[in-house]
Amino acid sequence: MRPYEGECLMLSESAKSRIVDLFPRYPDKHSVMLAALRVAQEERGYVTEEAMGEIAVLLEQTPVQVYETATFYTMFSLQPLGKHVIQVCRTLSCALVGADGLVRYLEQTLGIKAGETTPDGLFSLKTVECLAACGAGPMMQINDDYYEYLTGEKIDRILADLRREGRSPLASGPFLIPLLISSPP
């Protein structure tokens, strides 16, 4: 038997050391909060309550301080998400060039609504605000990767890649635009 309940949802030792390694960067451990939450999120795909408690101890804060920060930033989720979190930019510039159509296309293809996760736990779909790719819209971010200049065909390929390999070579590289629009990459 373990001392705390819900041990399996807690941070691993390597996660903890990734957090502690950042302490020297700041005069105050509190500053590692966002990074610590990111580590927690990466570890389980979402931020568990147990992890928040542990971050509190590491950072010498109370769990509520961790929680209030976690709920402020959209990149943290306190609920389990799919393996690939698709985030479609819905803000004006992308909306002008087809973001809403992109969301509809994804909804149809995945058979879920924005805000939902596929039953196989592979994909979650959300809409988000401007991701600074406005000139390359419509676009989406899946986990860490940006995908730009999207078309129906390209989306099909990306989803197929992700299903098959877990990643897709269509992810954008270092950003530089304009590119040649008439012949998309």
């Binding site: 105050d28 509190h30 590692v32 909060m33 402020f72 605000e129």
Partner: peptide, 29 residues
């Protein structure tokens, strides 16, 4: 001179300079 990268976590307001400072301090922006 040390330079560290501090990553945000999804909040437009953290571009506002004092919200940015709060965010570096690990708080809500």
């Amino acid at each position: 001179i040390e330079i560290w990268v501090h990553r945000g976590a999804g909040a437009y307001i953290c571009g506002e300079e004092t919200a940015l400072l709060e965010s570096i301090e690990g708080k809500r922006g």
